[in-house]
Write a protein that binds this DNA or RNA. Structure first.
Lengths: 217, 217
DNA sequence: ATTCTAATAGCACGAACGTTCGTTTATATG
DNA sequence: CATATAAACGAACGTTCGTGCTATTAGAAT
């Protein structure tokens, strides 16, 4: 275990590079041991640097947690949101969002599964800036799903009787359930099963003019 | 805050009563601050008793956590499982299980929402006895839902093409999603909305001979 | 090569952590 | 009433927590 500060490719001020290394490790640790359980000493050990040296980058634990959330968000955008924007608007994009979300869980982009789902449940009863930011990011994520469903409706892919926000919520609930089962029961088939369930649900509310959506894996 | 050891009705050895008081407080605290974040000193403060006196009841923190899980399970059985067994077998019972699960979240039977859902996500990457027990309890809960769906199929309430385990998983995922949204977004309508979503899903897979299921609230 | 500044380390702090120990206070038994 | 047992306490252990303060280093600029 424990690989000294990863030499993030140079090009920027030295401090910024270390900071990024710290945050990448923080996201990883937090996704496994929880964002609240994340400890400065533990993190410093992992990076083979001093507690005080690490601490100086953030000034307080809450700032470290907030910065960790931002880094997690960046990673999430990079691995899920942006690739999904490559899919054509409408239903295919909604499907791509679900599919890529499941893939990011399967491929353990975050070592502990899904950073934000875990953080949501950890902080939902802990008032403060961290909680607020997590809620904000999740709200945005649901909005993105909802907008995809709305586009699908405008494009005539989605039956007019269906509520886009409701559909977004339902598919994401299924995805979370798959993550839950996979991690808790060590059930490697769980995500594949919810992939089918989501696809089935989407097909049930799709019109005939909805383009065919291949299961990406 | 902080009410001295609640005088759990007498009739049993003194120690057992204190132990129960401790565990009821522990479940409450853990459902808000997390089962891992649960602290002996904090818990002792809440109960206005000494750390050492409290500690003596369990011998180790892990034992305290395990005992807390058992207490949470007892409360869950009392408020969700047992009342649901009053519903007739088959689809009505599956619906009662979902409905009562949502009610136990709405009525904050656990101050922090749903003890087991939160604990699941908290411990899924933390090997050990606590994790194993949580997984066991959750497996059992899914089995109960699945058996209800099977009974529904045998009674002819559920279409033969539907996989009972899959249906059980889907409705519980929706329920968890409702809990997630309610707590994270402070959205008091969330559970009512998933109640409808679940009912709709159930109706979509029910046969014509399935008894009518009134929304319980 | 020297200077300046930003980044890191070292050390110390008070508080809280889980845990142990010896003692005191209740309760139940003779 | 005396005594045995169970339950709770108070103090202290060694460790780790988050956070300061000061010194030392390393990279960039001159």
């Amino acid at each position: 275990m424990s690989a000294a500060v990863k030499p993030v490719p140079p090009g920027r001020p030295r401090g910024a590079r270390t900071r990024e290394s710290i945050l990448r490790a923080a996201v990883d640790l937090a996704s496994m041991e929880g964002l609240a359980g994340l400890t400065i000493g533990r993190l410093a050990d992992e990076l083979e640097m001093s507690k005080s040296g690490l601490f100086a980058h953030f000034g307080s634990k809450e700032e470290l947690q907030l910065a960790t959330v931002e880094m997690a968000r960046t990673i999430f955008v990079e691995h899920v949101i942006n690739p999904a924007l490559a899919a054509p608007k409408g239903m295919p994009r909604l499907w791509a969002l679900c599919n890529l979300w499941l893939e990011h869980v399967e491929e353990r982009i975050f070592s502990g599964g899904c950073f934000f789902t875990a953080a949501s449940f950890e902080f939902d009863s802990r008032p403060g800036a961290v909680r607020d930011r997590i809620a904000q990011v999740m709200r945005k994520w649901l909005d993105i799903l909802t907008r995809a469903a709305q586009s699908a409706q405008e494009a005539g892919h989605l039956k007019a009787a269906i509520d886009p926000a409701g559909l977004a919520f339902e598919v994401y609930s299924l995805a979370m359930g798959g993550y839950w089962a996979k991690e808790l029961f060590h059930d490697s088939k769980a995500t594949a099963q919810v992939r089918s369930a989501i696809l089935e649900r989407i097909r049930a509310v799709a019109t005939k003019s909805c383009p065919r959506m291949p299961p990406r894996r």
